[in-house]
Amino acid sequence: MILLDRTTSNRLFIRMRKNPVFQHEMLGAAVLHVRSGRATSRTTLARELGISPSTVGLYVDQLIAGGFLNESGLNQGPMGRPRRILTTVAAAGWFAGVEFNAQRIQAVGVDFSGQVVAAVAQSLPAEVTADLVIQTILTLVRKLAASMQGALLSVGLGVPGLVDAQAGVGLYYAFIPDWNQVPVGEKISGMLKVPVILQNNLRAIALAERWFGLGHELNHYVILGPRSGFGIAMVQDGKLIEGAHHAAGEVGRWPWPLDSGTGKRQELHHALSAPATWRRLAGVGPQAKLPEDLRAALAALADEEGAVWDEVCADFARVIGCLHMIADTGVFILHGPLTALGERFCDSIVQAANFMMPALSTVPLKVTPSTLGDDAGALGAASLAMEAWAPP
């Protein structure tokens, strides 16, 4: 997990001595390293931050006095003196993580040590509006508060579609008609009186993998999100890739099929979203009603064989193989209902991609289903809030 590289830490430290803002940032980085387990003592924290043990001692004392860190017990290494163990104080406050799409909103409450304490969800009606989404988010966060200790410190939001994270604005989402230029961060922060941090929901899921899933020790990975649409989130050198126009990863808008034909064309998400994939595998028409439990319906098809299965896997292989030739990532992590198709689905995609693209033999492709569940986006939103927090 990359939290703060040494070069950045040293730069911040030099500037911090001239500006208290950077001391504030370094204190937040110290908490992140302790919470992640990368730093368990003053010595290891000094190494992770790239600054002197004496300076780290001042930070640790300040964080202990503020009620954010504990120092207790002894950790005896193979050599040297025993070191006292640093841990975060779980009851120092909590973070809310909320993720939504056009069908439902999910929210989790995470304590200061990064442990999930509570989760709630709410389905949305077919005629959903931006105002209804915002009001439901507020209701769910207030429900979470009944199960949490300490004060709410901040809220992270995983927002679908295009997002201007810095401005806190949801720019556009095709499946909620009036979701255009919505200042969702300002609206929710104004009601809850805490900072609100936004990110595209798939990029939030990438953070969930970093804190709770397969991305814990990875610096390069890609989230595959064939859900109601199809998008990806990329992590390179431990950093989320957003793009110049906040649209990195919008592969669902690619023309489909990927050829130069002049026949009827559509966008990729029409063929490879989770609902479209179920309809293809189930052998029903493109307008067929979806099952109430899409994940369970897909699980029932996980052992399918034949031409349709092969065609679906070949289509995913074509897309993922092309992406891999661009990103050269460590692993593609599949999210959403299609994880119910299991390892066999992922392995079939890799086999088909290797057959189509012999060049992949020099940059091995790996696809695996996530171990996180349907609340991965909410977990990622909570991770967003944790990573952005620093002591007041």
Rank of each mutant, 00 (worst) to 15 (best):
P160V: 03
N200A: 07
L27I: 01
L74G: 03
N354P: 01
L365G: 09
V312Q: 11
I14V: 15
K193Q: 13
M79F: 15
G67S: 09
L360P: 02
M1Y: 05
I105W: 01
S361K: 15
M1S: 12
E305P: 02
A288P: 09
D131Q: 15
G373P: 01
W389K: 00
L153C: 02
G252Y: 01
H33R: 09
G231T: 04
R11M: 06
L144F: 12
V31Y: 00
W254I: 13
R253I: 05
E186S: 14
M357V: 12
R17D: 08
A271G: 08
V60W: 01
P358I: 14
S113Q: 02
H270L: 01
V155I: 15
Y221I: 08
A390C: 13
N180D: 08
G114Y: 02
Q266L: 10
A118R: 14
V116M: 08
V120C: 13
L63P: 09
H33D: 01
R279A: 12
W94Y: 14
P226A: 13
T129V: 10
M79S: 11
L157C: 02
H269D: 11
I105D: 14
T43S: 15
G80A: 11
I105A: 02
T329M: 11
L224E: 01
N19F: 15
Q23F: 06
E48C: 14
G28S: 07
N70V: 01
A165V: 03
A307P: 14
Y59W: 14
V319E: 02
T339Q: 06
G229A: 10
L323T: 09
T262P: 04
V222F: 04
L214H: 03
L334T: 02
F316V: 05
A121K: 14
N354F: 03
A233H: 13
S361N: 08
L74V: 14
P391M: 10
L171E: 07
A352H: 08
